[in-house]
Design a binder for these strands. Structure first.
Lengths: 209, 209
DNA sequence: ATTTATATCCCCCCAAACAAGGTATTTAAT
DNA sequence: ATTAAATACCTTGTTTGGGGGGATATAAAT
């Protein structure tokens, strides 16, 4: 029976909060706390022997931050799914966590039931996120609707952003090199820039591309 | 009372499925179907008068595809949240949908309760996704752990990918132009490529950057 | 103690790419 | 009938890119 339980480890420096989670998860059917640590350094020593399926990880930790701990934990227990559990909702934090290998991102106001569901979800290959986080992630994909660029110009700027030369872009779009140049001139003049790099940066910042 | 209900519109060509959703949502407390259409063209004419809070949109539609319909619907009813409801789970489809302005993405095997919850979630600023979709979205942020590139090389390749010239990169990293060139030479040789564009493409495909 | 990897800097060359200044035609949409 | 978009051409001048050959300091690994 025990082996069918989902093995959960905690890394959270606030003792009160940690005990709260221990209580919640430890008493839930099908879940088992196999490790509970106050810092990454603490966890590093023993977590491999805890065989975690899921690790709940705080971001603000003494010593190595939770964000930086993600790749290290992944190395120690490659098969574990890491869920970030934090009060922080800054975009940068979220994206760094996900880029570093987190499987999910929950805010600390997540109700107990949702936490348990998220643990299971992560284990089954899902990507549990608080709804607000999910929307931020989705929004990061979205384009602006008020781009001054025409569709063709946007397309060409996208190609430029992949590092392709004008010549190559011309070939791939079956148009003349001179046409590509014309488009670029127009792009620069619309965006008020004088170089590839500036055009790309401005376009990305404003989600034109 | 009626005005407190969440106004939902459907755009789905399969009549059986559409009727199923109509039944589900129409009979749920707090929800009201204010429009139901078999295609974008159909919806375009009347949907503005339906005042939808949330639009459930299929991707495979006769005429204009659901994906392409998203920006058009957004223009017709800017405040509506669009949730894609589909059998397709291809990465490209998902990212195009989100880029076009969808607030959520559900697969058609989503249980009724979750559909209703997702409608509410979208309305409240969340980003409802099927768990599998969420994981795909999260994975799109992640880097490979087996990049052959050193941290410095990765950093420089990232800069190159923003369109910056070697000179500018050198200035911004406070190193000599020659150093940047050396790194680039090493990057090319490690990646077995002979141009910016190829290096960027390969690195992006393999999530080195 | 000695390799190895990383990051740094230097020299050469030359073709190719880039940016900015124009002008002009065709097509599609309003 | 007018506008906007996409297309193509020309000139001029500067910068960058990619390939080749090296060197050196430092840190990590063995």
């Amino acid at each position: 029976m025990h082996d069918l339980d989902i093995h959960v480890c905690l890394v959270e420096d606030d003792e009160t909060i940690r005990e709260g989670y221990e209580y919640l998860i430890g008493n839930a059917e099908g879940y088992k706390i196999t490790g509970s640590f106050a810092s990454y350094e603490d966890a590093a020593k023993k977590i491999a022997r805890c065989n975690p399926d899921v690790i709940l990880l705080d971001v603000e930790l003494p010593g190595i931050s939770g964000i930086d701990a993600i790749p290290k934990l992944k190395k120690l227990v490659p098969d574990a799914h890491i869920i970030i559990l934090t009060v922080y909702e800054q975009e940068l934090m979220i994206f760094r966590a996900l880029a570093n290998g987190a499987s999910g991102y929950l805010t600390k106001d997540t109700p107990p039931k949702k936490i348990l569901a998220s643990i299971k979800e992560a284990m089954e290959g899902g990507g549990p996120m608080s709804s607000h986080i999910a929307r931020m992630v989705i929004q990061s994909f979205q384009r602006s609707e008020e781009s001054p660029l025409t569709p063709r110009e946007t397309e060409i700027l996208e190609q430029i952003a992949t590092g392709k030369s004008r010549k190559r872009i011309a070939e791939e779009l079956f148009i003349d090199l001179e046409t590509v140049k014309s488009h670029i001139k127009n792009i620069y003049s619309k965006l008020n820039v004088h170089s590839k790099a500036d055009a790309i940066k401005l376009a990305k910042d404003n989600k034109f591309i």
